[in-house]
Structures are given as C-alpha cells and as structure tokens.
Design a binder for these strands. Structure first.
Length: 298
DNA sequence: TTTATTGT
C-alpha cells in the first residue's frame, strides 16, 4: 500500500489536475490516462542557450548551475556540486540545485570515502547533527544525490553536509526516491544538461476538527524538521538547442511501492510553487524567449 | 548499482 493515510487539501487556485492528484483521500489519481496529457513535461520553445554574461541574479560565483535563476534568495551557499538555500527554522535546505550531465556522472569518486558531517557554516543554534538522526527511524536522505557527482571526490564529499540532507523515510529513500534519482541521471543520455532542484515540503493536512494544520515531526536535540513531502523540479535542456522542458514531482515522505510508476507523482510546477513558497517559472521565462508554453491546466 | 542504518 502506498497511499497516504491523511487527507491533503490545498488552497484555491490549484490546477484541476493537481487538485485531482492531491485530492482528499491521498495520492490516488482519478483522472485516468488523460491526466498525463494535462500534466508536466512542459515544452519551452525559444532561446536554446543563455550566455554566462546574461546572468544577473546570481549572487557570488554560482555560475552555470544557476542559469535558470534562484527559487529564493535567502541563506545561499555555493558548494562544489550544488547551490543551496538553507532554512534555519527547519534545520534543512529550502532547495538544492545541481546540474547533471555525462561528465558530472563519471569519475572515480566513491561514497565509501564520505561521511555525513555537520555544516560548520551554519550557526550552532540552527544546525543539524548526526546525533539528531541517530535512532530517529529516519534516513539521512540526500537532496543533491552523491552519485550525481562522481566527477570529483570533493564534489561528492560536499553532498554529505547535513545541510544537504533531510529526514527521510528509509523505505522511500532506498526505493522509490532512489529510482527517481536514477531517472534524473538516465535523462542525461537524452538531454544536454539536466538541472535538478530538490527540496522538502511541509504541507497542510485536514485534522479531526475539519481545519487545516501544518504539522510535522522534529527529531533530535536540534529539532530537525521531518518533511511531509519532497519535490524535484527538472529542467531538461534539449541537445539540439531547441529549448527546455520541465518536469516536476512531489512524493510523500512515507513508504511507496516500487510498483507505482514515477509518472504518478508528476505535478504541475505551479503546484510546487504554491506549496513551497518558491518560484521557478518566472526565472525560466526570463531565461527563454518563448517562455513556458501551453500547459493545459495552468 | 545506489540508497542507507545498526551492531560488533
């Protein structure tokens, strides 16, 4: 069984497909086959590539990884393998962006040389520690995945900062979430670059009194927040230079049968933007001539 | 293969 026990309810204005996908009773999709025709894989025609000189929103030297802009502008950190925004309240990242291509995926780096470590750049009041996770029942789930950065041991090491980690259901992490990470890597065979933005979500649920509450567990002495869900936004650059495509996923932080196809978790990017407080599409539109075209349920 | 934790 993979459906959520709790009822998920979102605010007005969500796309029909999204509200159907996330409707009361959990994640069972009722739209049938035509749901897929109305959801994600968004073609973005127009400018195929953007020159580095056009980058203006990038604080620091985040470079090519941030080509499509920042989802938010607080607590930005740039590491060897990713750029991230840290949320001191939850003791985990708001989002992490990485760029995958065949070069980033190949190399001799090995996670056996890596250890999860505190992020000393974060104030000790707001920092997760390994002790927080120990015995919690949750995995230290990577946001930017280690195997995405075999090109450099330093790059792989940097994914082991606990600021790039969130408490994740072990079954989810080691099965369906792992499969989603593998899918991201396999897409580098068909696309020039795969930009991946990953983060936690803390979604409201309807409780017994009929009202909506955001409720999440916290673990350890530092009260590291356990996300209710995780998102992944993929920006896929076509190799022929014709433009980019978007795909965005939301998965509940609970066991999911591997029998459930990943397509079942596709959602319109606007759904993630509303739920997360982040913005992706304005950035992408700024970076492309044609903008985001024709999403049926937008 | 990659994702991990726990115990010795």
């Amino acid at each position: 069984m993979w459906r959520t026990g709790a009822t998920l309810v979102f605010g007005a204005g969500l796309g029909a497909a999204a509200s159907r996908l996330l409707s009361a009773g959990g994640w069972r999709e009722e739209g049938g086959a035509d749901l897929m025709s109305r959801v994600p894989v968004i073609p973005v025609p127009g400018v195929p590539t953007v020159q580095a000189s056009e980058l203006q929103v990038s604080p620091g030297s985040s470079g090519a990884v941030m080509k499509y802009g920042f989802p938010s502008l607080g607590n930005i950190k740039t590491r060897e393998s990713y750029v991230t925004s840290y949320d001191p309240l939850t003791r985990t990242a708001s989002w992490v962006i990485e760029r995958l291509n065949p070069a980033s995926l190949s190399g001799l780096s090995d996670r056996k040389y890596c250890e999860f470590k505190e992020d000393d750049s974060i104030h000790v009041f707001h920092r997760a520690t390994n002790a927080d996770y120990k015995g919690s029942g949750f995995d230290r789930g990577h946001l930017a995945a280690a195997a995405n950065h075999k090109w450099s041991q330093k790059a792989m090491d940097d994914t082991f900062y606990l600021s790039n980690v969130a408490p994740q259901n072990p079954h989810l992490n080691q099965n369906t979430w792992n499969n989603l990470e593998k899918l991201c890597r396999s897409l580098t065979k068909r696309y020039l670059n795969v930009y991946v933005c990953t983060g936690p979500l803390y979604l409201p649920r309807q409780e017994a009194d009929g009202k909506l509450y955001v409720r999440y567990q916290v673990i350890g002495r530092n009260h590291v927040a356990v996300p209710t869900h995780f998102f992944k936004v993929l920006i896929l650059e076509q190799a022929d230079g014709k433009g980019v495509e978007l795909r965005s996923y939301v998965l509940p932080n609970e066991p999911i049968s591997e029998q459930v196809p990943l397509e079942r978790f596709l959602v319109p990017i606007e759904t993630i933007e509303r739920m997360s407080g982040l913005l992706f599409v304005p950035n992408i539109m700024k970076r492309t001539a044609g903008g985001v075209r024709a999403i049926a349920d937008r």
